[in-house]
Design a protein around this nucleic acid. Structure first.
Lengths: 219, 219
DNA sequence: TAGATTGTTAATCGATTAACAATC
DNA sequence: TAGATTGTTAATCGATTAACAATC
C-alpha cells in the first residue's frame, strides 16, 4: 500500500532514497514546531530542492497531498515513516568500542526511533567487560555464537580497517542481512547483503576537492 | 595542469567527486601492498564500478594511463592526490567535544593527510579546559576572536542540532569557507560557503529503507 | 467562485556504458 | 609482432525540470 503509483518490481531511484530521510528529518522538525501544513514549494525552499522534485519523489509512493492546500505535516510524516520502514524495530550489533563506536553507541536518537543496539563487541581485552550504552562489551570471539542465538537485522562495523572485512564475514555468516560500515574500506559481501557506507575520510576529501576547485577558479 | 582534458569553467560531475576519494583510498592500499600497476578492469572489479566508468572519470582530469599496460599505482595515486587538493595543508576547528567530537578529534588519519584540527570549542563549562587531541578545549564564546586571529579553512560542526546553525553562522562570519557538518540538520549558508554533510541519521534510514524494500519484495 | 497547489507528462539535461581506433 | 588496455565517441539510460490540466 505504500507502493501505490509505483509499478511492481521497479526499483526506487537512488536520488529518491537519498532525499527521503531528509524529508523525514525536516517534517519531524516541523511537527515539533506545531506546523500543520506545508507546500512542496515551501519544502523545496527550506531544503534547497525544487518543488517539482519533491512532488515527483513523493508521488512515487502515492498521493499524499491535496490541490490548493499542500501536505498535512503529520499525515505526510506518517507516510514517510512507513515508506522508510520505520514502523518496526531493528535489532543491531555494534562491533568496535573505540572512540567512534562509543559515539555511535551513545546516540540516543537511534533507540528512540526503534534502532536498538543489543550487543557491543570489541577485540581489546581491556574494553571487554566494560559497560556502555546499556550493554556489557563482549569479546569478538563470541560474535558467531551470539548471532546464532539472537537474530540481528543490522551489523555496525566501527573497527579499524584491517579488521573490518573479517568482522563483516562473521556478520554475513551469522545471517545479518545489512551492514552499516564506518571503517574506511570497501567491504565485499554477497549480493543479498546490503552495505551502507559511512566513510568519514571520503567525505572530508570531497570537501577538500570542492574547496580546492574553488580556489583554482578564483585565479 | 590537473585540468588537462577539461574545458575551463565546466563543473566536475557529482558522481566523479563521489568516486575520487574511493579511488584514492584503494590506490593508497595498493601502494602500501607494493602493487606496481593496475588496469581499469581490475580497479572496477575491486570497487564494484565498471572499467569504462573509471577510465572516463580519470580522463576527465588528464591521461594518466598507458595502452596495453594500465596505470602505474604510484603515479596515479599522486595525480589523484593533486586532483583532490591534498597537496596542501588545511586548518580546521572542531566545534563540539561530545562523544562524536572526541571521535573525530582522535582520528589520526586526518592529521597524517594534512588536515589539522587547530582548536576545539565546546559550550559546556565542564569540558572547557580539558585537553584533547593536543588542544585545550575552549569556550564557544571565544570562537569569533579565535577566527579573527587564525585563518581557518574548514569548520567541523559536531554539536547537537539546536546549536548548529548558530555555530555555522559564527564560522561563516569568521571567514570560514567550508563546513563539515555532523549535526542532523540542514545548514543555511551563503552560496560562497561549501557544506559537506555527514548525517548519521540519514544514512541509517537509507539502510532501513533498503532492508524494508527487500522484505516487501520477498512476499 | 477565485486562488492555490497537487500529480503527471513531455522535454531537457546529465551520467553511464559499450564499442573501438589508437598505441604501448 | 601480438596482446592488452587506454582514452574517447556515440548510444543508451536515468534523473530532473517546466508546464499545466485537474481539483481542492
Amino acid at each position: 500500500m505504500t507502493l501505490r503509483g509505483r509499478k511492481k518490481g521497479e526499483t526506487v531511484p537512488k536520488g529518491v532514497v537519498f532525499r527521503l530521510p531528509i524529508y523525514f528529518r525536516y517534517l519531524t522538525e516541523l511537527q515539533s514546531q506545531g506546523v500543520e501544513r506545508i507546500s512542496s514549494a515551501q519544502l523545496g525552499e527550506a531544503l534547497d530542492f525544487t518543488a517539482a522534485q519533491i512532488r515527483s519523489d513523493l508521488s512515487y509512493f502515492g498521493s499524499f497531498g491535496q490541490q490548493g492546500y499542500g501536505y498535512n505535516v503529520t499525515t505526510l510524516l506518517g507516510q514517510v515513516r512507513n515508506i522508510l520502514g520505520m514502523s518496526r524495530d531493528y535489532a543491531m550489533v555494534l562491533i568496535g568500542a573505540g572512540n567512534l563506536g562509543k559515539a555511535i553507541g551513545s546516540y540516543d536518537w537511534f533507540r528512540a526511533q526503534g534502532f536498538e543496539i543489543k550487543a557491543i563487541f570489541d577485540i581489546d581485552p581491556h574494553l571487554v567487560g566494560n559497560f556502555h550504552g546499556g550493554c556489557t562489551i563482549r569479546p569478538t570471539s563470541e560474535l558467531g555464537t551470539y548471532l546464532e542465538e539472537n537474530p540481528t537485522d543490522i551489523g555496525i562495523i566501527a573497527t579499524p580497517k584491517d579488521a573490518s572485512q573479517e568482522m563483516c564475514d562473521l556478520l554475513v555468516q551469522g545471517g545479518v542481512r545489512s551492514i552499516w560500515n564506518f571503517s574506511p574500506t570497501h567491504l565485499n559481501v554477497p549480493a543479498s547483503v546490503i552495505v551502507e557506507d559511512m566513510h568519514l575520510t571520503d567525505s572530508l576529501l570531497r570537501l577538500a576537492f570542492r574547496l580546492h576547485e574553488r580556489s583554482l577558479k578564483k585565479q
